[in-house]
Design a protein around this nucleic acid. Sequence first.
DNA 1: TGATCATTGTCAGTTATTTGTAAGGTTCGT
DNA 2: ACGAACCTTACAAATAACTGACAATGATCA
Lengths: 222, 222
Amino acid sequence: MRLLLVEDDPLISRDVAAVLSKNGYLVDTESNGEEAWFKGDVEEYAVAILDLGLPGMDGLSVLKRWRENNRNFPVLILTARGNWSERVEGIDAGADDYLAKPFQMEELLARLRAIVRRASGQASPVITAGNMRLDTRTKSLTVNGSPVELSPMEYRCLHFLALNRDKVVSQMELTEQLYAQDFERDSNSVEVLIARMRRKLGKGVITTKRGFGYTLSDGDNS
Amino acid sequence: MRLLLVEDDPLISRDVAAVLSKNGYLVDTESNGEEAWFKGDVEEYAVAILDLGLPGMDGLSVLKRWRENNRNFPVLILTARGNWSERVEGIDAGADDYLAKPFQMEELLARLRAIVRRASGQASPVITAGNMRLDTRTKSLTVNGSPVELSPMEYRCLHFLALNRDKVVSQMELTEQLYAQDFERDSNSVEVLIARMRRKLGKGVITTKRGFGYTLSDGDNS
DNA sequence: TGATCATTGTCAGTTATTTGTAAGGTTCGT
DNA sequence: ACGAACCTTACAAATAACTGACAATGATCA
C-alpha cells in the first residue's frame, strides 16, 4: 500500500518511515511543501501523513490544494501538541484525522488502519449483466451507455432478475417478490411488467423459458 | 441530521446536547449502555457520540455490537485524557475518531463535521454540485457565485442531500433525518420543502426520481 | 407591549406517472 | 391443429409529486 510521508524533520521522518515499511506500507518521503503537493497530485497514494509545519508551502495549503483538485486519498496530519485550533483548521481543510506530536507509533498505526478502512469502504453497488448496468445508489439503469428510465416496479423486477442472472426465475417467484404473497393468481401483471421492460431494454435481454420462467442473460449471444 | 449522544454525566450531556441542537443536529440522548445500543441498532442516525465509561454495558462493547450488526454510521468516542491505549482499542473496534475529555465545543463540532463528511465519501467540507457550492463550516450557500439564503430547515435538507450526492434519497430517509422518527407519515412537508428550495436553487439541481426520491445531481443531465 | 416578519406545517386542487386489468393476438410444444 | 403459455395494446383507477394559499408559531424590534 503506497503511503506519502511529508515531514521536514529528517530524524522523525527516517524513524517513522522505517516503522511504516516494517508494517507493510510502501513509503515515499518528502520534506518540502511544493514537492509534496506535486507528488500527491501526480502519484496514486492510498494514504498520506502530512506535517503541518513545513518549509516552502505550509501543510495546510498543500492539503487544500489537493482537495481542490479532487485528490481524495485520506490524509492524517501531524500537529504540535495542544494547538487545537490548528487541528480544527486542518480537519476543516479536508484532513481525515490528526495526531499530536510526539505520538506513539502504535497509535499512528491504528489510525492509519482506521482511515484507510474508511476510505476503501466506498464500494460502488453496481450490478452488471450483459451490456446493462444497474446502479442501486442512483436507481438508474444504462444500456450500452445510454440511460433508461425505470418505474419503481420495473426497477424492483429487474433488480431481482439481475441478482439471479443466468438463472431461470419463475413467474411465481417474481410474483412473491414483487407483491404480497396473497396476490391474485390469475393476473397477468408480471407478463405486462416484462413486456414493458423489454420495450425499454431491447430484445434479447430478458429471455423466456416457456413453462419455467424468465432469464436475464449475461452474454448477448443473439 | 440525527445524532445519538451517549453520555452518563447529565450535566455534560445537557450542555453538549444544547450546543449540538443549536448547530442543527437532531439530538437523541442516552445515558445507559444497553439502551444506547438498542437505539443505535434500531434508529437511523447520521452520527453518534459515545462516552466509553458507561453504566450497564460499557461503551466499547456497545460499539463492537453495533459494528457486528453492520451499523456503520460514524462514531466519535469520548475518552479520558491521556488514556491512549483506550483510544487505540476504540478505533480498532470501529470508532471513526476520538476526543479526550475535557474538550472544546468548537473542536467537537469540527470533528463531527469531519467524520460525517468522511463517512459520506466527501473529502472536502465544501460540497459542490452543478453550479452550487455549500460550505458546511459557515453553513452558507452560493449559486453561480452569488449567495443564497436558506432557512434552517432548508439548510439541513440540502446538507443531507449534499452528503448523499448523486444518490437517490427517499422521502422517508429525509423525514427521518429532518424530523423525529415519530413524525406524521401522511404529511407532504418534505415535498413543500423541496419546492421551496428549488425556487431558490433554480431548476435541475434537485431532480425527482418518481417513486424513489430525490437526488442532488451535478445539474448537466436532462 | 404590540406590530412585523420569516419560518414551517397543512391543506386543497392540479398534473403526471404508474400499474393492474381485460381482451384479443401470437407462439410453442405435442 | 389444439390448448396452454405467453405477448401486446389500450384503458382506467390508483398513486406520487407539484403548487399556491393560508395559518400557527416564534423571533425581532420599535
